[in-house]
Structure formats: structure tokens, C-alpha cells
Design a protein around this nucleic acid. Structure first.
Length: 272
DNA sequence: CTGAAGACCTGCCTGC
DNA sequence: TGCAGGCAGGTCTTCA
């Protein structure tokens, strides 16, 4: 489901609802997610207070004393906060009940999501996190850095942008939209883009992600916020999912190609 | 090392 | 109406 903006929107929605709340019960309800459920969570969390909800890349981090619960939403993961006596929702996998009578439900139809419970001091050393690149909305991601990671690479810039070792949080939608705004063809070899154009790309990535967060994320088929409302950024797509439609800036028609097994959308007139 | 393809899952839409 | 095929926002593993 989610790229960085959607995860960030979920984080903001969850924060005020679960921070400072005490857990009373954890239940793991169904067939497994992508990786085995950390069984010690059922014993560790009850009695503890959620101190914070943060985000790193596309992961949510929940602080509980000496441990951090990390959560990746995969493609279709959703959190909902419901009264504890609400029956399990479809594809519900985990529930965390709080002292105040509310219950956090995790549902995930495709089960690509996964949970971990790590020591608060060393969670970032785990292989899920240790190789991650910089956050795109923080200062470490700039034109000079991107240039250093593109030098000598023949891979298409779109694939480079989606490589979490280079920069985190940019998925299929926002890679397409960023490249459109920067006027760069998604198949262009990363090593053959000038520094000024990479600077435009860095700027485009930042603006697209920021605008998407402010719009509440992109709801394509099933993304919803914690309160069930959709995000509205999909209305602002220039190319994603618009195959055959007219480009908003030129006479061109939006095209779809497949790169590394994923759909890419671009305007042949605007993107070189 | 790099880059591409396949795998993991279910649901939904299209076309025959 | 039924069913096969293609597609879906992510990441990891395998293979060339």
C-alpha cells in the first residue's frame, strides 16, 4: 500500500491516539504475516505505555520502554482504532488492546506486512534498517549526494530512486511523479544525468512527498487513514495511472512501460 | 559487483 | 454467470 507519505499520514494519525496509552492485551489472530510474529510481544507489551510513534523509511516505530516495536505495512496493511468489543475486521491479524477501552487492529489482505520487537538501543542495527539510505525530507538527501550514488550506474534512474539503500520512502507512484516534475525520462541511465538535473530531481522528490503528506496521502484502491478517511493526493497525479491521457503541459500522451517488473508512467514530450 | 526477474499473497477488474 | 489473466502502493532472494 504505502509509500513514505502514506506511512507518515498513518504515523500522525496514530500518534495522538496511542501515545501515552497503556497496553492491556496483545493477540495474534491468524495465519502469519511475511515474517514470524515476535512471540515475546504478547508478554512484553501488556502493562507498558506507548511513549512515541515515529517513522523511519516506510516503517512505523512504537516506543515501549526498553524495546521498539517496528511495523512495515507491506502493500495492503492498515491500522484502525476501534472499541475493544468490536468483532475482528476482515483480514485482521493483530490486535493491541489499550487500558482506555480502545483496540488497535492491524489488517492486511496480502500479508506482505511484518512486525518486529527490538531493543531500543540497537533496533537500527537489524538488517531491516542497517542498510537504509537517508530520509528524502532531511538534509542528507541533496544533489551532491544523489550524484555520488548515480555515478557510473547504468540502471534506469527510476529504479535507482526506488532503491532504499540510496534514498528511502520513494515507491512506484512518487518515483513516477517526481521524474515527471523534474522532466527526466524514467529509463534514463542514472549515471548519464547532469548534476543540475539531479538537483531538480531532488527538489521534485521533496515537493511531491511533502505535498502528498499534506493531502493525506494517495488512496488508489485501499489506502485509508487511521480514522478511515482516504487521502486526496491521487487527484494530483500527473502521470501515475494515466496511460493514454493527455499530458497537462504539452501535446503528448502519457505512456506506460515496464521497468524491473513495475509499471512506469511518463510523458514522452516532457521527459528526456 | 550490478541489474533483472521471480516469489511472496489476496482482491479486483477486464474480457472472452 | 463463470473463469482465466493481468494488475496492484514493497521487499527479499535468486540468477545471469
Amino acid at each position: 500500500m504505502p509509500e513514505l507519505p502514506e506511512v507518515e499520514v498513518v504515523r500522525r494519525g496514530l500518534g495522538s491516539l496511542v501515545e501515552a496509552r497503556r497496553v492491556v492485551r496483545v493477540e495474534y489472530l491468524s495465519p502469519g504475516l511475511r515474517y514470524p510474529f515476535p512471540a515475546d510481544m504478547v508478554e512484553y507489551l501488556p502493562g507498558r505505555v506507548c511513549e512515541y510513534v515515529r517513522r523511519r523509511a516506510k516503517y512505523l516505530l512504537f516506543g515501549f520502554g526498553e524495546r521498539v516495536m517496528t511495523w512495515h505495512l507491506g502493500m495492503t496493511g492498515q491500522f484502525h482504532l476501534l472499541p475493544a468489543d468490536t468483532a475482528p475486521v476482515r483480514h485482521e491479524h493483530v490486535r493491541i488492546d489499550f487500558e482506555d477501552g480502545q483496540s488497535l487492529r492491524y489488517r492486511d489482505a496480502r500479508r506482505f506486512g511484518y512486525v518486529g520487537l527490538f531493543p531500543a538501543r540497537t533496533w537500527h542495527q537489524h538488517r531491516w534498517f542497517s542498510g537504509l539510505g537517508p530520509e528524502p525530507l532531511e538534509p542528507g538527501f541533496d544533489a551532491e549526494y544523489l550524484r555520488s550514488r548515480c555515478v557510473g550506474r547504468h540502471a534506469p534512474i527510476k529504479n535507482v530512486l526506488m532503491d532504499a539503500r540510496i534514498v528511502v520512502g520513494v515507491g512506484n507512484i512518487y518515483a513516477a511523479e517526481s521524474l515527471y516534475r523534474a522532466g527526466i525520462h524514467p529509463a534514463r541511465a542514472a549515471g548519464r544525468i547532469s548534476q543540475p538535473r539531479l538537483a531538480l530531481l531532488v527538489d521534485a522528490v521533496r515537493r511531491v512527498l511533502q505535498e502528498a503528506i499534506e493531502a493525506g496521502g494517495s488512496s488508489i484502491s485501499d489506502f485509508v487513514r487511521v480514522d478511515g478517511r482516504p487521502g486526496y493526493f491521487a487527484h494530483a497525479f500527473h502521470v501515475y495511472g494515466r496511460t493514454g491521457e493527455r499530458c497537462g503541459q504539452c501535446d503528448g500522451t502519457i505512456r506506460r512501460i515496464v521497468q524491473a517488473g513495475r509499471s512506469s508512467f511518463y510523458c514522452p514530450g516532457c521527459q528526456r
